Simulated scan of single mutants.
Amino acid sequence: MKTDSIVTASTLRRLACATSALLLGALSTGCIAGPGSDAGDEETVGYAADALSGYYQWIRRTTTNTAGYDMGLTSAGTCVLSGVAGKLDMGFQWYTSDRESRAAVERSGGHNWLFAYGGAYHSNSAPYHLYNPVLAQATCFPDTTNVQLGTWEASTSSTTLAAPVKIADLDPNHLRQCFLSEIRSVQEAFDQITEFGRVKEYTTTDTWHPTTGWYLEGSLYASSWDSSTPNLGATCIDFPSGSVITTGYVGTLGDTVTETITSGTGIKACGLTHVGGTFTDYDWDDGVFIDMPATLDGQWTMTVMTGKGGHWACVK
């Protein structure tokens, strides 16, 4: 059994650690900063399931750190977003040192990397960090078959939607699932309840989706400040024969809600396919989160804060 937890010294006093009775046998849960914690600028937390399941979950939250955290080899697994939180309505991209705010999983150099960053603007040829808190959470599946990646970028117009981008065909075996893997956001994005980014399967055609398949799309526009454009990324995985995929939605305009999104016995894992709503608060705890269970074959839950919503997909 392996558990990884890497945190800065300033966070240790406020970490709440949870472990289950299965520490003796199967699953352990790492440390996670409790709500309202006064954690330092950078924190990376690893959750780990043992090799029997192969599922891992990671959290990274920063304001100014542009570096990614290495979650392991792409040959061993495929990682996708399972949580996004913080302030995503700021960021720039046109000048040399501009930076978008970012919550992302990236496959690079044979490794899976997790990024969370609050954005910056160009100042004297160097990035001036915006000090926005951004959290990214990832689930890593022990599956690597036919991994397909796709990206979408908003139109440079602040009033015109960009067309959806087809990133994968339908799977006749119904074993393909696509997940969000990246959100790059800019000034004025994710500041309205109607804004979203998603990857979605279309089994019929229409004007926006001329052929069937998986499409990456968003209700997001360029910034009226400087025409910086939000970007989305998605990752598709073909799961093994016998896998069962379920999907659903959790959202709220009122109080925070937590819902159980899996059922039955057996090992499961989940990721996000849609993130929407207002991400305007300076708060790492204000977002959309999918959390793993305390027991190996327990149930996954999804917590959504006010003014937000998310679609999920789980694989068993």
Rank of each mutant, 00 (worst) to 15 (best):
F141N: 03
C79E: 02
V250N: 05
G298V: 11
G213P: 10
P293F: 04
T273P: 00
N65L: 15
T78C: 03
R107M: 11
M292Q: 14
G150P: 08
T160P: 00
G30A: 07
I237G: 04
D4P: 09
P142A: 00
Q187G: 03
S228F: 05
E106F: 12
T247M: 01
Q299L: 03
L12S: 04
L175C: 06
E106Y: 03
C236I: 02
G298H: 03
W300A: 06
V134L: 06
Y69A: 12
G36V: 12
S157F: 01
A294E: 06
Y215I: 02
K200Y: 03
G109N: 07
M71S: 13
V80Y: 09
V244L: 10
E201H: 03
V80F: 13
H311C: 02
T3N: 12
D255T: 14
D238G: 07
C236A: 09
A126V: 08
I183E: 01
T19E: 09
T301H: 12
T29C: 06
Q137S: 12
L114T: 08
G309T: 01
S241K: 09
D4R: 12
A294P: 09
G110D: 01
F289Y: 10
S155Q: 00
S82H: 08
R60V: 15
P210Y: 14
P133C: 07
V257D: 01
S223E: 08
T247Y: 11
L170C: 05
S53D: 13
A26Y: 14
